[in-house]
Design a protein around this nucleic acid. Structure first.
Lengths: 343, 343
DNA sequence: CTGTTAGCGCTTTCAT
DNA sequence: ATGAAAGCGCTAACAG
């Protein structure tokens, strides 16, 4: 921009003091209507836009929050981001988007720069379960709330779904459909969320009297390509899973991709169930059976809770810890097992 | 945060002046090694994080850019956002994400707040073709570059694909597969990008001697649900399109959704081609034929161009206007027409 | 109801 | 090589 117009310029044009300009900008109650109009006129004529940076410095508030996601390309996060930014706009906050690609070093770096930029609060969607920095923030009373993320027995704020239960739901569904050889695409166990899903999977099988076949579980990093390759390899074996449970819909899509590449029909020859219920899952061309997370509700909640943390100073109340219920939604990708395989 | 630690605190702890602290923070060349170490120590011990807001106020730079998208839920934008934020992080910029839901009023509001927040530059991915505000920004020399977006004969910076040509490619592909009844999901003509696609579609048909059947084209707002309903209705008619061209992959998915709901097989009974080449299109379970946009390249370019606009003041050079070539990628959703329908 | 004044925490001359 | 001091454009007492 060129030599920007300041509130002083407005003031002198309107024949008032700069603080009066500030007052009308902030809707102070007791301003004479006529001077208010003079100021408003001057603002319009000069095309003045108030400098929020200076305002932030003086007021110690930025009306900006940070949103840290593991992968914005995962529709679950994109869909969540949409409602978060929408709600934020309503409440007059802006959001800085931080994409960590699931790298812990990026998480640290981003937290650091967000603190530097003096954001009013942070939403984290991929917090590894023992992250020291996040605990510190909480202890300092800095507004942070985890979204679809939890931490070990700590006092942190979070909103998530009952992941353990969700995973069990998935396992039981597959079992009822007569599947006994079940593949599993695990999430990184550094995240408590996916770790709980992993536990739910194992315990679920155990309760049904089935042993986990280690060869059937993928437990490396989140990577579409690697999951694709893993699945493909597995499907080629003489004894292969008749069903897959993937810890996210995104990964379930990778499984479907691999199945298609092997000309394996879903659900006739292979059942697949995901987790998240991304919009695409509803698409009848795909029809992914999945475990729902009430993402609209969750996303609205995080934003609201974060803002209340920022604006009221309830800081010392007990932590916000909300666990919502998951639900199974059966669509086309799961069906009764008809494959004779091993066993 | 609590009573934050300022550079003054660091200074007094290190026994130097605040400006020296500032110098080490900014890597000034001529500082005695010993004092540098003292300062660094003090910083570490105090856990000091420099206030970027104050820094911005003093330096008139925020190292923050705005990214305005029509819909972050559209994988094309999410995938673009990922590379943009990644590149931005490398170059030490942060990005404020603005999701307009394709509403022009939101675009205006967001531009306004971004200007207020004194961002160093803006990337816009959904600029309506006559937007006055954007022209103004350009005229003022404010760094803006449009991404996958263009404006009417104006001097604005943009990076996009040859949309007109891309659309023709799609039409010809369908024609070669012997389709004559072609449905079209148009994009809003307020965007020059989609408008050009619309023209390419029309001209493409014309050149092949085919009249556009108005009843076969959807030309309302971008809306998954409405496109779904429209397609569904159309597919029920005795004389229906044997193929659809959708102006975005996201909309192509809506068409596939509708086809599946009517139990119409793709591509045996209906061909579908999209535009964008989102990652999902490659998924062999879907295998969407589409027109590619080199999004990785485009996204890298916008960020780089924007930053060079910000950091060097080439402002007065000629506008950055880059048009890349689209490409057709055939996958599973298009095939030779075998349906006898009208004609 | 409005003006004056002192910061907010940095950067950036200008001295030394 | 480093310190002193003047802003950057606001907000927020404090007067009156």
């Amino acid at each position: 921009m060129k030599g920007t117009i300041s509130a002083y310029d407005v003031a002198s044009k309107a024949g008032v003091s700069q603080s009066t300009v500030s007052r009308v900008l902030n809707n102070y109650p007791h301003i004479k209507e006529s001077t208010k109009q003079k100021v408003l006129m001057a603002i319009k004529e000069l095309g003045f836009t108030r400098d929020e940076i200076a305002r932030s410095l003086a007021s110690k508030k930025t009306r900006t929050i940070g949103l840290i996601v593991g992968d914005i390309t995962n529709p679950f996060f994109a869909e969540s981001a949409k409602v978060i930014t929408g709600k934020a706009q309503e409440m007059e906050y802006d959001v800085i988007l931080c994409n960590t690609n699931h790298k812990e070093e990026n998480l640290y770096k981003y937290i650091q720069t967000l603190i530097g930029k003096r954001v009013d609060g942070i939403i984290i969607t991929s917090a590894d379960k023992d992250n020291q920095k996040i605990k510190e923030l909480y202890d300092q009373g800095f507004p942070v709330v985890l979204y679809n993320s939890l931490m070990n027995h700590e006092k942190v704020n979070y909103i998530a779904v009952n992941n353990y239960k969700g995973a069990k739901l998935a396992v039981r569904h597959l079992y009822q459909l007569n599947h006994r050889l079940i593949g599993y695409i695990a999430g990184p166990s550094k995240y408590l969320t996916t770790h709980l899903r992993n536990l739910g999977f194992q315990d679920g099988l155990k309760e049904l009297g089935i042993d986990v076949n280690k060869a059937f579980v993928y437990d490396k990093e989140f990577s579409y390509d690697e999951v694709y390759q893993f699945t493909k390899r597995l499907l080629k074996k003489p004894t292969r899973p008749t069903a897959f449970f993937a810890t996210s819909d995104q990964m379930a899509l990778a499984v479907l991709d691999a199945a298609a590449s092997e000309n394996i029909n879903v659900p006739q020859e292979l059942s697949v169930i995901g987790f998240d219920d991304i919009d695409m899952a509803k698409n009848q061309f795909i029809g992914l059976t999945t475990i729902t997370q009430p993402k609209e509700k969750m996303a609205t909640l995080v934003l609201e809770k974060l803002v209340s943390l920022i604006e009221e100073n309830d800081e010392l109340g007990s932590p916000i810890q909300i666990i919502l219920e998951p639900e199974l939604i059966q669509r086309r990708t799961t069906g009764v097992n008809s494959v004779q395989n091993g066993v």
